[in-house]
């Protein structure tokens, strides 16, 4: 307990379980789609970890979101291989098609778009991921076509 000795673990569930904060936040985000304030307060009450520390961790990691996201999260890869294969143009086309800038969600809450550092599909560059599915060898128009399939409900 030496590392977190200043925290008073009130709940047995957390006693001796240092390092549970990130998995807890991940679980909360999986369930709610983002980190709700109430949920963070709940974690604070249960664990005794200061809310400031919880927010510190939540804002440090790129994975955590404090705002709700759309039904489909589109992550355009901007890794090196994708960058040299036209990732910027791909993102521009998707942004133009959906009418929202990078990092935002469409008004109908269907799509959120963001860029990620690397999806690890470099030989299929440029690539993007929609929820769990990865798409590769895209042109800007092919990417828009994929998005349209989701919009029409042909894919989910």
């Amino acid at each position: 307990m030496h590392t977190h000795r200043r925290y008073n673990f009130k709940n047995q569930h957390f006693a001796g379980q240092e390092g549970r904060l990130i998995p807890l936040l991940q679980q909360a985000q999986t369930e709610d789609g983002y980190l709700r304030r109430e949920r963070l307060e709940e974690i604070h009450k249960l664990s005794g970890i200061p809310l400031a520390h919880i927010y510190g961790v939540a804002t440090f990691y790129a994975q955590f979101r404090l705002k709700p996201v759309g039904k489909f999260l589109l992550r355009a890869c901007h890794g090196t291989a994708c960058h040299v294969s036209g990732a910027v143009e791909l993102s521009q086309a998707v942004e133009k098609h959906l009418g929202v800038p990078n990092g935002e969600t469409t008004a109908d809450r269907m799509f959120s778009i963001e860029t990620v550092s690397c999806l690890g599909c470099c030989s299929l560059a440029p690539a993007m991921m929609i929820n769990g599915a990865t798409f590769g060898n895209l042109s800007p128009s092919a990417a828009v076509k994929v998005v349209k399939k989701y919009q029409k409900g042909e894919r989910s």
């Binding site: 977190h4 998995p23 961790v57 440090f60 990691y61 790129a62 994975q63 550092s117």
Partner: peptide, 24 residues
């Protein structure tokens, strides 16, 4: 342990911080 999206966590001391539930 699933990472949470921070490149710096590939650095060993930052990675350990992250496992301990802190900012990496």
């Amino acid at each position: 342990k699933e990472g949470a999206g921070a490149f710096v966590c590939g650095e060993e001391t930052a990675l350990m911080m992250s496992i301990e539930g802190k900012r990496g």
